[in-house]
Write a protein that binds this DNA or RNA. Structure first.
Lengths: 209, 209
DNA sequence: TCAATAAGTGCAACAGATAAACTTTTGAAG
DNA sequence: CTTCAAAAGTTTATCTGTTGCACTTATTGA
């Protein structure tokens, strides 16, 4: 699933060079912060665009120049997300299969982990879980990595780059958390969904790469 | 994927009893027909709700009492769809596995078949394929059968009704056509996606039911 | 310095969707 | 047959996300 760092985040991207870009980034974060605060206070649907724009002291036109749609205010794009996903496959431990690597990556995600620190992230996750529009949008964004993941899978497994099995595995892996959504034990459920994929993959490819 | 019978369809449901229900159904079809005609003529996004309402000679409020959202005008719900899906699993040939039955069902669907009669359905399929909002909505509707399908899978395979593997297989099977979307040979691609599931399922369940 | 470019503004409008109050059928019960 | 309640539909107005347009301001690179 897509993840966001709520509030002011330690910069991971390259330092903004010009004053212009710095100001732009500041405006953007002012908007996102105001939006998240209001959403958490009163719920996603109860907060309007105009209100957010007011709180961030910008016009709605400006707001939409930074975020294409309302949902994007919550899922502030994390550029590293895709890299981490692909790395999890590429740099997996020796002897581990591709689906197994994807399973580990999914299980270590903060959204399915559910434990750990009681930071603001819990509230964020709850907001997303409680808002259908946000769940859908998050999943849609998450699926945008399907193509890239399929390519990596093809490389790692030696299959043809256009083998439909690669796309299928990529898509299914990205859908796995959603597929078993609603189960009482999320970690076990996700693991079982990946078992299905792992068994199928090893049978399909012959080996256990 | 979801399917609709464009235009006036031979009635499959029970005969409408009272005059009231007949009139209601007539209004509903007038709206749906007008909408589909306009969409096919000029494209989904180029036709507004008010325009459709005018063409069907009803108010927009009435329109929305029959169809909850604009997309529903195209995906006029087919009540038999789910039954056919479940039957494909329940009444599969002896010796055929559950995933294999789902694959056959998917391959026989008019949306992936792509061949056959050159009826209005081709234009309908093209409309959906060309309109992201419609693709998304159709898939969403299609996924509503996940729960029912998972239950049937559990019955047929003897697994516990709440085994996450059942939900996973159901979800993946319903996502399969979308997973391999964009491939040059859709039938082969879909078949390969189902191969992955079939191999995994037989390994997971031990037998080849 | 000066034009080009990008960010931001204000305002109006559009499109999908909903609410409230009201009129007209229709079905059915007395 | 009358009467009555629910359903279907209308009117009107409004809300909300989103976009277009004309305009201002600030930054930047030449």
């Amino acid at each position: 699933m897509s993840a966001t760092t709520p509030g002011t985040s330690p910069d991971s991207a390259a330092a903004p060079v010009g004053r212009r870009e710095r100001k732009k980034a500041a405006t953007r974060r002012a908007i996102a912060d105001a939006a998240l605060r209001l959403f958490l206070e009163r719920g996603y649907d109860a907060v309007g665009i105009r209100e957010i724009a007011d709180a961030a002291d910008v016009s709605t036109t400006t707001l939409f120049k930074h975020f294409p749609v309302k949902e994007a205010l919550v899922f502030d794009e994390d550029a590293d997300q895709e890299r981490r996903l692909l790395d999890a496959v590429r740099n997996r431990p020796a002897g581990q299969s591709v689906p197994a690597a994807l399973r580990e990556h999914a299980l270590s995600s903060r959204l399915v982990a559910a434990g750990g620190g009681d930071d603001r992230f819990a509230a964020f996750a709850e907001l997303v879980a409680a808002t259908p529009a946000l769940r859908d949008y998050g999943q849609k964004m998450w699926l945008r990595h399907t193509g890239a993941l399929a390519e990596v899978i093809a490389e790692e497994s030696g299959l043809a780059a256009d083998d439909p099995a690669c796309r299928a595995l990529a898509h299914f892996a990205l859908e796995a958390p959603r597929a078993v959504h609603g189960h009482d034990n999320p970690r076990e459920a996700v693991a079982r969904a990946f078992d299905l994929l792992e068994q199928g993959w090893s049978a399909l490819t012959g080996r256990n790469i």
